[in-house]
Write a protein that binds this DNA or RNA. Structure first.
Lengths: 213, 213, 213, 213
DNA sequence: GATGAATGAGCTTTCATTCAT
DNA sequence: CATGAATGAAAGCTCATTCAT
């Protein structure tokens, strides 16, 4: 009924309705983090939220829309956390470092919702069986990283390389860092991030001889 | 009846049985690659194999054993393809390059089964809701990579770094390369691999000034 | 969702829910009585109740809980029918007679549910293959019978004997009476009960010479 | 193929075939005793016998015929054990005692096959859902008991009573004795039998005043 | 005679969704 | 707005039976 969502034109929602949606999204995050995506039935999510199953169906067009809201919420949060820190960096090399460290910083404080995000990415499927969020969903991130990389290249800070390949690699390395830490909570995430930042810096920076001059 | 098999002591199987098992494993791979892990029900796998559902239950203890067989088969294949090439390399730097290029090479010829492998890794769960194959399952790979990295460090080819972090990063980068290519089949996998190899080499090699002497 | 119910703390159920549960329990009784326990699949029970299979799963945690509810309901009913009559008896000898006659009386009016009860007792198994309701389930009945027997012995109405053996025998004789009548509905249950009462009385009563005095 | 058994006219079987049948019947007994009738699938029976499932189908028309063979074998055995002892008794009162004691004696040495017998009686169903072996299957036993009881009445040893009721009760009491002991193996079966014999004797014997004379 | 392989029906259970109240 | 109730499809698995070898 609700949320047939001609995209973009989201009918304005009452305050109370937004609150309910937020509550349900939170419950979904916790549930997915605990039981995995396949285990996160509407039943269990409703149970955790302390509401009835029907409420979810009332506020969301279906399970899929709920999951999309989870993704949107977490993505927005990450961006709000990370982007300002990156923006403060004096140049692209520093920005790259900041990006990695900031993301790791975010991870430490929000493990649960990132676990949930990963669960959705891995588990959610289109009716035809393809992943709903696959690598294609990273496109905006790739684009934004590429922009930064190209800017660094233009300023002579980075060597020549295929920006898409590096963007993909960077994102994979960050995801890997998170996944490893999520599996081994005692792993030193901060040290990992520092090591990774150094690793990335070395791999993209311009050769000394290339120094502008 | 079948497969109560105290692990390790797998009763020798007749030729015809092995053939059936192989056929079913193949059908499972195709089905998972096409419909994703959650969509790969025994029904659909049997349908693709042109047999009845019961046959699978007859030859495998359950869905889980079937999936484990898929994993084992693909892993074995990868190892048989990649390891010899790596072994030929004259030193660790070359070995690292070879590893990346060989894996990419394997990917090109076996996309489907790698997609299936990824599907199982992401989708398969333990009864408690944890991933059956999570990052922990990469441990043997990490170990083997670390060994190579340490050897290179000892010989002065690589700089000092945390071998575990780099092993995790390398594996993530390779997985990312595959995932991206699996999503965009027209992506130039060979070029990607070459770029990645250069990327990795730069990030781990010893600084020129560190040269032994 | 339903019935995770820490036992004893059964969340109060709405009137409508209790009605449904009762309806399903009734359908289960009829189905078991007709087709036997093994034949009483959820499918058939649902069909008889005129509802869908899922409804049963919705209202009961599983087939086992449903069966346990059937047992509980019939047991309660029997107790409510029989105990008051026994309580009216002037002494233990009379009580023993009353017990037998009252049970037979109950049987005549509730053959179906007793057949169902028997079906569950015989057919229901624990996961390990033991009977869910075996002779051990008769323990409360044995206890209560023993109490009566001992009281009669203390008052000199009954001779000396092993109360447990007689309790077991009495219960078996009653079950046998029911089973025979269930098989041959034209069998004169009332006469059988009278005969059995006489039989039991003779076997337990004190010898004339033992008479107190 | 085999055993379409125009009843009575059992085609003569080779020695080797009889041996196989006996072996399978034994395996069936053990399996039923261990796992209960519902758990005794042909698969498990074959496994215990160390043969393939097909063998059973080859030698028996189906699961039902196998079970019938089990029943027949055990019944025959019991009769061969009990009847001679009863025949030795000087009169009907003694015979009744002997019957109970002899049966208990048999039980002690053959618990497993009696458990299996009970499992079949309880679990086996006709296609329509009725018990294959119900109380009706006791008919020959009832008849034979009645005969003895009537003879005793004629000779003035027993009082007047409905012989069918007593026969049913006696059989039920014996079955109950077995069932209780099967559940509680430490129960003193011999004492139980003695107590039961006394119990029965008291309930059927003629009153002292009725003594012939 | 005996076997392993295969079948297909049936089982219980889970789940996203719909709907009357 | 919210709920509990109900649905029906699909899942994994077990089993008695059949059949070619």
């Amino acid at each position: 009924m609700r949320s047939e969502s001609s995209p973009g034109s989201q009918k304005k929602r009452s305050f109370i309705e937004e609150a309910r949606r937020a509550q349900i999204v939170s419950a979904a995050i916790t549930t997915i983090a605990e039981t995995g995506y396949p285990g996160a039935s509407l039943s269990r999510i409703a149970q955790r939220a302390g509401i009835s199953k029907g409420v979810i169906s009332y506020h969301f067009a279906g399970k899929d829309e709920l999951m999309e809201q989870v993704v949107e919420r977490v993505y927005t949060e990450i961006a709000e956390f990370v982007l300002p820190r990156v923006a403060e960096a004096p140049d692209e090399r520093a920005a790259l470092r900041s990006l990695i460290l900031a993301v790791a910083d975010y991870m430490r404080g929000h493990r649960e919702r990132l676990v949930a995000l990963g669960g959705i990415f891995n588990g959610m499927q289109t009716p035809e069986g393809n992943r709903r969020y696959g690598f294609a969903a990273n496109e905006p991130i790739y684009r934004s990283t590429e922009e930064m990389l190209r800017a660094g290249q233009d300023r002579g800070l980075f060597r020549a390389f295929d920006v898409r390949v590096i963007a993909v690699t960077l994102q994979a390395a960050i995801d890997g860092m998170f996944g490893y830490w999520a599996t081994y909570p005692d792993h030193d995430l901060e040290a990992h991030a520092a090591e990774l930042a150094e690793f990335i810096d070395r791999s993209v920076r311009a050769d000394p001889s290339d120094s502008p001059g």
